[in-house]
Simulated scan of single mutants.
Amino acid sequence: MADRSNESLISLIRSLPELITDLIKAEIEQAKTKAIHMGKYAGIGAGFFVGALIFVYFAIGVLVAVGILALALVVPPWLAALIVFVVFVLIAVALALVGLSYFKKISKDPNPVESVKQDMDAVKGVGNYDR
């Protein structure tokens, strides 16, 4: 940037739109650079999280195997596996029922179209509404 200490006020005012445009372009460039930087590191971080989740997924499988083997010390191995299977099915059924109850709550919410119709009836003075 040139030294503008000796320029007149008029010439400085004339150069103001150009300076503002340059400032906006520089800010946009800085925002782009920051977005690229953030995106790069966010992508790398997400990749490591996905890797960690994969290992946790397999660790859970190993934990289930440990549970079956530990239970096999008390009962026959086939029965231990069957018991763990039944427990998992019961957990799945319980989760499905809870999820189903939430889906049923969707239909209990007031319908916006009906609400608008009731409001219009109230404006017209017909229907049941609080007076």
Rank of each mutant, 00 (worst) to 15 (best):
A70E: 05
V93M: 07
G47Q: 09
F85P: 01
G39C: 03
F88G: 07
A94S: 04
G45E: 09
L79T: 13
P76K: 10
G67P: 03
I54P: 03
K40L: 06
G51Q: 07
A81K: 04
G61E: 13
I83W: 00
F88C: 05
L53C: 06
M120C: 03
L95W: 03
I36Q: 09
G43E: 01
G67R: 15
Y41N: 10
L73T: 15
L95M: 13
D109I: 13
K117T: 02
G67T: 01
L69H: 10
V75L: 11
L71T: 14
I54T: 11
Y41G: 02
P110S: 12
S115I: 15
H37P: 00
Y41F: 15
V86A: 15
I68L: 10
L63P: 01
I44D: 12
L97F: 07
G61L: 13
V86C: 04
A59P: 01
P76A: 08
P112D: 05
M120N: 02
G99C: 02
Q30F: 12
I54F: 07
N111L: 03
A94M: 07
Q30R: 15
V56W: 08
A65G: 12
Q118E: 13
V93G: 02
V62I: 13
V50E: 04
I83A: 05
L69T: 12
G39K: 02
Q30W: 12
L100R: 14
V56P: 00
A42R: 08
V75Y: 12
A46T: 11
V86D: 08
A46G: 03
W78P: 02
G61Y: 13
A92P: 00
I54D: 05
L63E: 10
K34P: 00
E114L: 11
K104P: 01
A31W: 00
G43P: 00
V66W: 09
P112Y: 02
V89T: 09
A42T: 10
G43N: 03
A65D: 15
T33Q: 13
A72C: 12
L63N: 10
A72R: 15
V113P: 00
F103T: 08
G67V: 00
D109A: 11
V66N: 06
A81I: 08
I106D: 04
H37Y: 12
A65Y: 11
V74F: 11
S115R: 12
P112R: 04
V50D: 06
A46V: 08
P112F: 01
A59I: 05
A72Q: 08
W78L: 13
V66T: 14
G67F: 14
L71P: 09
M38Q: 07
L53Q: 07
L53K: 06
F85Q: 05
L97Q: 10
Q118S: 05
H37L: 12
P77V: 15
G47K: 04
D119R: 03
K40H: 05
L100N: 11
A42V: 07
A31H: 03
K104D: 08
V86I: 15
F88E: 05
F85C: 10
I68K: 12
P76R: 08
V86T: 09
A59C: 06
